[in-house]
Every structure is written in structure tokens, then in C-alpha cells.
Amino acid sequence: MTRGGRRPLRRACALAATVTGVVASVAGTSSCADLSAGYQGPAALDPPLAGPCWPLPDAVTVDVGYQVMQQYVVGDRWVLVAQWDRLSPDDFTASLTESLVDGGFTPRGAEDGWHRFEAPGYGAVAFDVTALEDATPETLVQGTFRLDLPRDAARPRTTAGCTPIQKVDPPAEGATVMGEAS
């Protein structure tokens, strides 16, 4: 391609990047670490629960479809609010429990609806589950779960762009089951 052809293409790309940037900033999304500059638009979800961006230990393999919707911070705890897909609440609880146990976590029982776990060197995690109102077995999304993690987990291990997560204020009650606020 000649130079005459490249320049407008670059301009279009620059414009597209600007638009994306504006949309991203208007969207009020923010990654926990300052990664918004690396945001590349609504690409495929980089699984936040385990992986380089929002890590549980790599050994944790989540077998359920999910989408992270929000995040909030309470004291030294970092809570992800996510939806899970397809499975009933009981099956989802069983599946996520199994994933955590297989990934090296030890169950520490349930408290106020939170299922608690702990792994040496990582710390305590917990999740709670709320079924989607009026969901039928055919509904793709079946409910919302909160994953209560050590705040240290919010430090991505990558410099690549991570999917930003909307930051919200923690709920007045029951924001976490652990940490300073509990």
C-alpha cells in the first residue's frame, strides 16, 4: 500500500482507538490496578477468576461459564460480583467448591451463606450464591455469586490489557465475610 493509503488508515485506527478510549472512560470502568490505558475494547473475556489478569492460583480451573460484572474493595478484601451460567445454584456451588479444592484450597465451612476456603501462601477466599429470580432451567444466566479474595489478588501478573471491571461501593451489610470489615 502507498503512503497515501496508509495515512488515512492510521487516522481511522487512531479515531477508532480514541472513540474506544472515550467509550471506555465514559463507561466508568476501572481495573483494580491501573490498566485502563491498556484496554483494547470489548474483546473476549480474559477469565478473571484464574489467569494472569485477576488471579486465583493457576491451579484453580473454573469449569462453569461466568461473567464478572462488578468489583468492590472492603479493607484488605477484594470482592468480585459475577454471574454464572447454565447450572442450578446447587450444582454451581458444588462445581466451584470442587474447583477450589482441586486448586489446593481447603474448605473451612460455611458462615452467613458464605462458603469459606483457605490455601497456604494465598490466604482465605469465600463465595456466596444468589439464584436469579424467575430463572427457568433454560435461562442461560442462573444467578449471581460473590468471590471474596485477598486484596493482593487484585494485582495482575501481566502488563497486557485486562478486561476492566466496574467498581462499585460495597453494600452496607454483608459486604464480606472476612478481613477488617467482617
Partner: peptide, 28 residues
Amino acid sequence: LCFGPCVEGNIWTNMARYARTVGEQTGE
């Protein structure tokens, strides 16, 4: 709209993005 509130921001973009994410997660 997103089986609960969608992410804040441009609602049209976010609804479409959400649908794509759920599609990727569920194979739908």
C-alpha cells in the same frame, strides 16, 4: 437488562458486549 443491572456506561455498547460475553461462556 443484563439479568440484573448492566455495567455502567453506554448501555447499548454494554448490552451488546454482555451478550457476546455470555455467548462465549455458554456457547450460545
